[in-house]
Design a protein around this nucleic acid. Sequence first.
DNA 1: ACAGGAAATGTGTGCGCACACACCGAATGT
DNA 2: ACATTCGGTGTGTGCGCACACATTTCCTGT
Lengths: 357, 357
Amino acid sequence: MGQKKNRIKDIAFHAGVSVGTVDRVLHNRGRVSEEALKKVQEAIIKVDYKPNLIARTLGSRKRHYIAAIIPDPSLDEYWTQSSLGIKQSIAEWAPYDFQIDTYHFNLYDKNSFKSISEEVYLTKPDGILLAPIFYKETLPFLMLCKTAGIPYVLFNSNIPEASSLSFIGQNLLESGKVGGELCHIGHHGPGTFAILHINENIQNAVHLLEKEKGFRKFFEENQSGGVQVVSLDLESSEAAKINQEIELLVADPQLKGILVTTSKGLSIVSAFLERNGKKGIRLVGYDLLEENIRYLKAGIIDFLINQNPKRQAFLGIHHLSNYLLLKKEPPAMDLFPLEIITPQNLDSYLNARLHSY
Amino acid sequence: MGQKKNRIKDIAFHAGVSVGTVDRVLHNRGRVSEEALKKVQEAIIKVDYKPNLIARTLGSRKRHYIAAIIPDPSLDEYWTQSSLGIKQSIAEWAPYDFQIDTYHFNLYDKNSFKSISEEVYLTKPDGILLAPIFYKETLPFLMLCKTAGIPYVLFNSNIPEASSLSFIGQNLLESGKVGGELCHIGHHGPGTFAILHINENIQNAVHLLEKEKGFRKFFEENQSGGVQVVSLDLESSEAAKINQEIELLVADPQLKGILVTTSKGLSIVSAFLERNGKKGIRLVGYDLLEENIRYLKAGIIDFLINQNPKRQAFLGIHHLSNYLLLKKEPPAMDLFPLEIITPQNLDSYLNARLHSY
DNA sequence: ACAGGAAATGTGTGCGCACACACCGAATGT
DNA sequence: ACATTCGGTGTGTGCGCACACATTTCCTGT
């Protein structure tokens, strides 16, 4: 039964050569005669050789170095979460001689990303974890890495044509559908449902539009008659304008629910409804940020969809490390479930260990 | 900065002893003088020693053996999920020379559990993962393991006085509260809300009552006037009787929502509502079982609370293995978040890799 | 025929650890 | 007095592998 051992030494014995020769064919280092090559290859198949990964990593005392490039957490609480995920993974991989350095760029400044990415490239990392905020600037950088043979993993938002080792995040279309559903639950008959994009960064537009597509799709697929969907696109810099628009929106007595696609926007809308009364309007947003949690507990926000940025970053490093250390191919896409947070299950999420592992 | 290496050898150097002595204190093998012990312990702290897992497993060719004792999956789909979680962890730990054997007992037969547990005990495992269905029979078995020095981890339901290494599951009180919330969402004014226990096994009663307590608590804390809570306790063997009771329950035009606390019961209620019309009654239950999924997609079931049996079992093995291999103490309780499944986010849960890590 | 050198092959060492064993001195027994 | 035990300690080996290096073989050119 249990094939006990199939070590390099066994291959060497079967092939009638030394372990050195076997080592050379295993690693394609050349310097092997046709004859020996053939015998060794046969022996490898014969004993069904599976390298002992434990011993391999111990034997090659290579130091792995990973660079993580994310927006500066001090500018946005969402990225603080990601940062925590990376910190956690640093602890996890330290025993395996991994060095993981985090580089921050300004979320609102393309040039900051450019200079940081150049800096990272010069450090010649063995792998890169990246949150691709700026599409136009990211793609060339990734192509550069590709030619340099540096593997990279994307998270949070995807660039499909970047042919990354893996992408970690959520399906934004489905996310929008769930947002629609949460706005709609328990409502019958006609009504207006709004989706609000309040962002500072045109770059994100494409992602937000994907959510909107899902939002609209939900209502198309779940026709209950007389339902109207509206969308609003606002610049987060103009606070006065935003409040004005929200006031206009809420004035419609038919308004039943709002999905806000950005966390920053959500707190603005929440504050508005807290001041002026909720009037039975369902409010749905994203992520377990401090302010959001407060508004959820207070009953202003009804649902949050958790994108789990902490775990995204954690798994990103995980996939990368596993690939570097064990040559384990990660899934091309690791899509997270769309977690729904309510006032009642909030604590169970806050208290859960998102994995020590 | 980067503390480069902290090997046993380094401890020995700092303590002014040999690696053999350090080894003895690390493994509590005795034969160490007070003086040396103190010096070594200080050195360990000083260099912040973290054992190299890689080298450890390579050096000690000890084979770890874990026994997992769960109900027979062929009798209940819920346990098929757990079984899958164990299978996944087998793959995870195989490289570290772990052998993980699963033993099944009959969910409906105490004696089957007794004989299986005795059989497992005779195999002298290094650790045990256990789903404690039969309280009265489980406790003595665990005490036996305790005296034999075999660590055990419980999952699914807890036996607090068993002093297990760890428990993995959900907070049932909060689970009931979430169940109440889901029944209530979008409803205003008066109405009746029911909680149904349909089980075959009096053993589970205490757990179900905990959920009921949470269910009632939610409605107490969220008074909206005229809300009435009723509970029903039924034997799953008497199908006719059940349908009769359900018919009676549904006849009440004030009935707004039902929480069914067992998966088996849920399919019975779902079938009833599918036949006789849903009449705007909110239906909430547990777990991503095949039938439940079907009814959720069909709109008969509105929400499912996911207990994530697969991940529970997976993490159970994980904690156990980590403890055996690295002496890493798991949390006494690892409570999972109360995941809410809707028709729209269902797919995202089904497609998600529960992470190999 | 023989040096020179490249091609082919074998040997040795260390990664960090666990563990068996050898050693040494002091206390004990007869 | 000597053998025996035993607490306390250090040394040596091997786990399976990668990789540097030593060694042999064989092919050139003169």
